[in-house]
Design a protein around this nucleic acid. Structure first.
Lengths: 92, 92
DNA sequence: CTATTATATAGCTATTTAGCTAAATATCAA
DNA sequence: TTGATATTTAGCTAAATAGCTATATAATAG
């Protein structure tokens, strides 16, 4: 549910991963290179993001390409704005 | 920092507390009554929210009244929209 | 099939966190 | 001051989480 999104978002490394993916899809290896953590650590962060459906993955030969699931991100933001946004209104 | 807000928001009980406070300030006891958890458990949730500055507290005699800190909530939302909102734009 | 590369999973440890009960603190009435 | 009420803090346990290394799986080249 939404809860997975909140928990996924609670970690700064995962938010950084999402930030990287804003510029376009990246392979798991490319993502891991941007961090100091070990590759399996980043792999697990990716699986948390995937579980929250904030990212989608697709195998491309030996690589697994991750992309931002903008729909889920935007739905989450819309939910937040509706629930905590007060008088914030979004331009269509 | 922002990180405290994300972590505070990651718990469903705390989001529910914020939701209750949208309707107006409540005492710690009034908040605790709305939940099945023990009162000290809710007290600690309140302290997490306070630490993230999502709520403010003020003693009123024997009571401690909590209110939503709408400024911090809105700033957090604005940050989220700027960082993950894609084309979402907020009306001023 | 074998070796290599890319990635995930298993299994462990240390840290964090949520929950509880019991005890401490603060306010106030008498 | 004493007692009652409101709330927090301390101290504990159980569960979740992030990190690591080692191992397994998947794809592909030779």
């Amino acid at each position: 549910m939404n809860d997975n999104v909140f928990r996924a978002m609670a970690d700064p490394t995962r938010r950084k991963i999402l930030d990287l993916l804003k510029a376009g899809p990246l392979t798991a290896g490319e993502i891991a290179q941007k961090f100091d953590s070990a590759q399996p650590t980043i792999s697990r962060h990716l699986s948390v993001l995937k579980n929250a459906q904030l990212v989608a993955d697709e195998r491309k030969g030996p690589y697994i390409v991750y992309r931002l699931n903008t729909t889920v991100v935007q739905n989450w933001l819309a939910w937040l704005i509706n629930n905590f946004g007060g008088d914030i209104r979004v331009q269509q």
